[in-house]
Write a protein that binds this DNA or RNA. Structure first.
Lengths: 258, 258
DNA sequence: GGAACAAGTTGCGGATGACGCAACAGGGTG
DNA sequence: CACCCTGTTGCGTCATCCGCAACTTGTTCC
């Protein structure tokens, strides 16, 4: 036993610790051996050896000799291989690109991951206003169009499990569970979701579901931009293009082929 | 004995093995426990436990219950955190974007990694012809403009170490070491590199170095496109824009601020 | 239909390999 | 110069991980 106890880790202790180091670095950006050791609750030397092993695979690198550690390029190599293999990203990319060109706005692709939305890919619109790159970021589910679409793919039991406290971000954020359930029901019926100023004032986004061969909602595709460029009438124009694009990707993934 | 021997691994055996699994999966895309065990030269159960630990951190996922394993979304999460922290990508992105808009061709950002060029970022040009996404890929150093620029930042000793056999890709590929040294010398003098049909017939690229605060060449920025769109006279037009962009990024990274 | 096979998964005991300790090596700062 | 803070390394012990072998489950082939 011994290691079987603590919250949700796997089998091999040292590997688990090493991977936790990666997560810590992802969270804090940079950390020294001592900080890491404290975070893991192990001895400095232990942390050092783990970090060294990670370093030999280029997953972390030290900023200077005897310096702190941060995530390394090896992570990017792996990520390149991951997206190359994830048929979702593979199939969706050309469609996203075309949609971005057609609308002039930014297109994002997101999946459900650990009670939040994980952005897998992003294609910038033609506009000069370049938004933050969200790829790899966790985003709240209840305050984004992508999040609402992803939630709409869950059944009620799963919904309960995923929804914790609904944080307020703006005056428009939906914070009552009952209201959110209504909204999700609406999303299911319409086949798309809209979020205006709910995560950030001045940010508007619309999203539509992507289905796999079994019909499950496996991802969400969104078009987003500043609210002044996406007023209600513009949203009306964008929606059909978005929904069509999402359907196209779903088809490529085998949806509707019986 | 045992672990100290084999090529270039770090200290902690089980972690080293686990990370090797990630690399194997990056290479082959999908693999079962048995395949992985064979690749590492360990017992099935060992491989299984390592994979399970990786899975608990979402770095790998199984395609189906009792199915094969592949890289998971956790890798993308880490990658998101990595690029967010790598000030190179951060600083270079807007410049790349502007350069892509100005030239209409694809802009890439590459660094040296383990005897090859690693592409960190890519901004597509306006043209419909969308090239392959190279992000996260390894590219030979001697047959690309980016590679030549990166080589130009090394001293002779490091050059010797990095250069193995010079594979031929096309009739234009430089395969003699002496010729490559001449070329690299030229790149140093000119401050940029050109590669026409050297990696692939019909592919032209030009690249310029990005320096850090110490003046080292830490990355390379390139403009590339089909040779028919980038004949010699067009390359002449593009070059100043490229060099200026590379200098701009270098400045942002502290180069030339004393 | 069931037998043989091959995949992933799990319990167990033994020895190997990872851990904590403590000492070392540099760099700042007072 | 002494102190304190880093990251780094040798060593002995004991916990941990590994290999074995048995189990489970799904597929193939009579």
């Amino acid at each position: 036993m011994s290691n079987a106890g603590e919250g949700g880790n796997g089998g091999v202790q040292s590997v688990d610790r090493a991977l936790t180091i990666l997560e810590v670095l992802a969270r804090v950006g940079e950390a020294g051996v001592t900080d890491i050791a404290a975070e893991l609750g192990v001895h400095k030397s232990t942390a050092f050896r783990l970090v060294t092993t990670l370093e030999s695979h280029r997953l972390v690198e030290q900023t200077a000799d005897r310096g702190k550690y941060r995530l390394g390029v090896g992570v990017l190599r792996l990520a390149g291989a991951t997206t190359a293999r994830l048929d979702l990203v593979q199939e969706a990319r050309p469609v996203c690109r075309q949609l971005a060109a057609g609308t002039g706005e930014t297109v994002n692709l997101a999946v459900l991951s650990e009670s939040s939305a994980l952005y897998l890919d992003q294609v910038a619109g033609s506009s000069a206003l370049q938004p933050h790159n969200w790829v790899g970021q966790h985003i709240p589910l209840h305050a984004t169009s992508n999040g609402k679409v992803l939630l709409s793919g869950l059944d009620d039991a799963a919904l309960d499990e995923v929804l914790g406290g609904l944080s307020r971000y703006t005056a428009m954020t939906i914070t009552r569970k009952s209201q959110l359930r209504e909204e999700i029901k609406l999303v299911r019926e319409q086949g798309y979701a809209v979020a205006v100023d709910e995560l950030e004032v001045g940010l508007t986004a619309v999203a539509a579901p992507i289905h796999n061969a079994h019909g499950d909602v496996i991802a969400s595709m969104s078009v987003s931009g500043p609210t002044f460029r996406l007023p209600a009438e513009r949203v009306e124009e964008v929606l059909p293009m978005l929904v069509e694009a999402a359907v196209e990707v779903s088809h490529r993934l085998g949806w509707g082929h019986r």
